[in-house]
Simulated scan of single mutants.
Amino acid sequence: MRPYQLITIRECNEPLLPIPPEIFPFVLPHPYEKLGAPYGERSPFYLREGVLKCLLTAQEMLQEKRPGWRIQIFDAYRPIAVQQFMVDYTFRELVQAQGLFLETLTEEQRQGILEQVYEFWAVPSPDPATPPPHSTGSAIDVTLVDETGQPVPMGSPIDEMSPRSFPDHFANSEVPDEQQFHQNRQLLSKIMVMAGFEQHPQEWWHFCLGDQMWAWLVNQKNPDMAAIACYGAVA
């Protein structure tokens, strides 16, 4: 169990609403749907009502700082079944990358690879008290595109399982390109946090608002606040 999963959830029952594609460009085809993730009739481009309002605020702030730039949506709502699919997919990919075979893994190897998987993927828990963040409809993976619609360089792709994914990985670099990566990440983080979101400590692209991780991060900054979560898993 991760520390943020100890946060109390008091579900507010806000609806999931579609993210408007006329305002926010989507990464298409959706990367997890392309792999065969079981969304069924659900869409990954949905957020809780209050979270969507704050995302719109972040977009307005971005326009003030960089006219024509937009927040691009990589992923938002993720059913628990999709979370399980991606955990299983990542596990298989790591097994193959390490020159191993699923059929002959030792228990020690299996546990070691699972630990690597869960460094970047939340456990697909069906327990209402410990939902994966994206399954609440209040976590979102985003990047930026410029006025021409081209991706703004961030120094590493979304979902990369490496130290480059940490938000401040390039903070102390003296390489001009890497300094620009850091500035772009800082811009994304600034507008999202000013709009009410909190940023995942290990992922430059992941932001949340109102879920357990958000409340835990808020409490780390303000120990006297005792924030709780208002979004649980959406079936």
Rank of each mutant, 00 (worst) to 15 (best):
P38S: 06
E11K: 11
P124L: 14
Q150I: 05
I23M: 07
K221I: 05
E174R: 13
L100D: 02
P163T: 15
L187W: 02
L187V: 06
V51W: 06
I7R: 07
E49Y: 14
C230D: 13
Q186I: 05
R70M: 04
Q220I: 01
D177E: 15
P44W: 11
F197E: 06
N184V: 04
P31V: 10
I71K: 02
V95S: 03
P38I: 09
P44N: 11
L209Y: 11
A195M: 03
P21K: 14
S162W: 10
Y4E: 13
Y231R: 11
M86G: 00
A76W: 10
T90L: 08
F24I: 14
E178K: 13
E174L: 04
D211S: 08
L209C: 05
P79K: 15
I71P: 00
M61E: 07
H169K: 09
D146L: 12
Q202R: 12
Q220K: 09
G196R: 10
Q83T: 11
V95R: 02
P132Q: 13
E178G: 07
L16P: 08
R164W: 08
N172T: 12
E160K: 06
Q212V: 13
A215K: 09
V87A: 11
Q116N: 05
H182D: 09
Q186R: 14
Q220G: 00
V145Q: 07
P31S: 11
D168T: 14
R92L: 08
L62T: 06
A37P: 04
Q84F: 10
K53C: 13
V123P: 00
I9V: 09
F120M: 06
